[in-house]
Design a protein around this nucleic acid. Structure first.
Lengths: 161, 161
DNA sequence: CGAAAGTTGTTCGAATTCGAATCACCTGCT
DNA sequence: AGCAGGTGATTCGAATTCGAACAACTTTCG
């Protein structure tokens, strides 16, 4: 536990830019989605993930894992979305404990209304601020970073003495 | 409001990498700080910001603006930090309404204990996953993006007819 | 001066988050 | 079969978040 390598100027610049962008972007996207279609960014994320899934439905845990969220947080949000008629729960036949969250027609329609504006804002605030080279560097670099974190997460090997 | 330019593969790859990294990193840093020194990432951020300030003190609004946080959120967190003895409020002599949040000795000491581990984790999870070129691209690209968002924010020109 | 308008920080209520505990159920092993 | 341990989803309480409303003060300008 010696003195760790501090961040040099360039590293600090990258780190601060990353944190600032992350915070500002999250706030803006959330705000726009709210006044646009009445969804939080997280709720949009859930619906978006479901849109991509086979049949517009996923098991709760699978959905929770694919999002940032904890399982209890997902239970709450899916309940909210269900109240709003955008998602419907369905029992799982293979495993009685299991629950599917399935996109409703209304949910799909809302996504079609929400997506263009959302994508446009992502483009305006982030993508269009980047050169093509920067875009590639970010895709590669952050892709690698997130892959590492995800891989680490799955190594929960129990050491049973 | 025609069909907006969708994201192409490369853009999508960058966007997803960014979102994933942002979420995973935030979670990990928060978790480590909590078990290391009992601070949330936000609280650490507040103390870090104060450390850099002249005399270890800042006005509440200035502090709130420099962080992501809303003013009410800051009031809450500073109260928490004050309870923990890491920060102390002080009245502002120039403006009676004003309040300074000032780092205490204890707060400064805690930061000295917290910083090395925090920096080490930032390095491990993000910095060390990037090549030097990627680091520079991120610093430049995301720096530009965050600068644009901040600039936009300050243009709240009232249109008084 | 002195009223109108803007700032500053806090308080309030509602919504959201998390982790721990819980209950019901599946799986593997003997 | 039957038990031990693991898994899936929910519920609960505590902590945190936000925006709107507020009170106190400052600034601006006629």
């Amino acid at each position: 536990m010696t003195d760790p390598r501090w961040l040099d100027d360039e590293e600090m610049r990258a780190w601060q830019a990353f944190v600032a962008t992350s915070a500002l972007l999250e706030r803006r996207l959330d705000q726009q989605l709210r006044e646009d279609v009445g969804l939080s960014h997280l709720q949009y994320g859930i619906l978006a993930r479901l849109s991509l899934a086979e049949g517009g439905a996923m098991r709760m845990t699978e959905l929770a894992d694919s999002m940032l969220n904890s399982k209890s947080g997902l239970t709450y949000q899916v309940s909210q979305l269900e109240k709003a008629g955008l998602v419907q729960r369905a029992p799982c036949t293979i495993d009685v404990r299991g629950v599917y969250a399935a996109l409703t027609d209304e949910g799909r329609q809302l996504m079609q209304r929400a997506a263009p504006g959302h994508v446009a804002l992502v483009r305006e605030l982030l993508i269009d601020a980047l050169t093509r080279d920067q875009l590639t560097a970010i895709a590669d670099g952050l892709g690698e970073a997130s892959r590492r974190m995800l891989a680490e997460q799955e190594c929960a090997q129990p050491t049973t003495p």
